[in-house]
């Protein structure tokens, strides 16, 4: 891993960039401190996606968030994918690049889902080795996000939070703590989200995700099609108490409302952060 400065400062309060909001963002300069872009959506050669991205990158700090690195897959790393990721990073100069602690497929198939890993030493070794190789290729630390899961594997040897904490230390990567995913997985596997949060090393967490979920067939599903729930905001409060000011954003991927509704939700996150941290919420990167 190349030498790199310490943990980046908080960017403040951001949103996931969605095409439905391009016009409102460019015309209105909304009170959003930064945007997260889905990396794969901007692997396009040109046209409107890239034009909008370039214009928004001129005005707002960006971070890149991918869904297809498949860092835990036992298939070889997809070097074409990584090449495109690096080219996009060269273009938009993101503050950091993130993806998920998951695998998306093997044997040439992509299931387009974020599938959980068994929490075993074998998987930990595998994931840490791949993170190190990706970080070397990209020349920067990446942030790895905990996913929502609906199953646990019978052969897991440790908790998810112990796995994540050890992965961050061993691979020397950042963490993206998805507070909604902690809540959803906690509800599905009967663990206390606070326990998860208390185990994660403070010096590794560079970003929080907030999102909505839905009731499935007897368990919670990470749908990103609802407002952030009160329970997730409560857990966010606990996360702020442990981690201090951390770049926070709301992810909405379906049933996407007008920008004003997301800004109101973001204001709620700001208000909670102000309550918990006071003036420290104002600390942001220049």
């Amino acid at each position: 891993m190349p030498a790199q400065d310490g943990k980046p400062e908080s960017l403040g309060f951001g949103l996931g960039l969605r095409p439905q909001h391009y016009g409102e963002i460019l015309d209105g300069n909304p009170q959003v401190d930064w945007f997260e872009v889905i990396s794969e959506n901007y692997f396009a050669a040109g046209g409107q996606p890239m034009r909008m991205l370039d214009r928004i990158a001129e005005r707002y700090p960006l971070v890149m968030h991918g869904v297809s690195m498949s860092i835990a897959s036992t298939s070889p790393l997809d070097m074409t994918y990584l090449e495109r990721l690096r080219a996009l990073a060269d273009r938009v100069n993101p503050r950091w690049i993130s993806d998920h602690l998951c695998w998306t497929g093997v044997h040439g198939v992509n299931l387009h889902d974020l599938l959980p890993v068994p929490y075993t030493e074998e998987a930990l070794d595998h994931v840490c080795d791949r993170i190190a190789r990706v970080q070397d290729y990209l020349g920067r630390r990446i942030a790895i996000e905990n996913v929502s899961s609906y199953i646990e594997y019978a052969d897991s040897e440790m908790s998810e939070w112990d796995f994540v904490a050890e992965m961050a230390r061993r691979a020397d990567c950042w963490l993206l703590l998805d507070v909604n995913n902690v809540f959803v997985s906690g509800a599905n596997h009967a663990f206390d989200g606070a326990r998860f949060i208390e185990t994660i090393p403070v010096d590794r967490v560079v970003q929080f995700h907030l999102a909505g979920h839905s009731e499935g067939n007897g368990h919670l599903i990470d749908t990103h099609d609802q407002p952030v729930s009160d329970a997730v905001f409560h857990l966010y409060r606990q996360a702020l108490q442990r981690f201090g000011p951390v770049s926070t954003m709301i992810e909405r991927d379906d049933n996407i409302p007008p920008l004003a509704e997301l800004l109101a939700e973001l204001d709620r996150a700001r208000a909670i952060a102000r309550e918990v941290l006071g003036d420290a919420t104002e600390i942001r990167a220049a």
């Binding site: 609906y150 199953i151 019978a154 596997h189 009967a190 499935g216 067939n217």
Partner: peptide, 22 residues
């Protein structure tokens, strides 16, 4: 057989979430 018994509903229900989502 790879999936741990969940605290509520069944392995089949949990696996079905991934199958359906796919």
């Amino acid at each position: 057989a790879l999936i741990a018994a969940p605290p509520h509903n069944s392995r089949e229900d949990r696996l079905a979430t991934y199958r359906n989502a796919y």
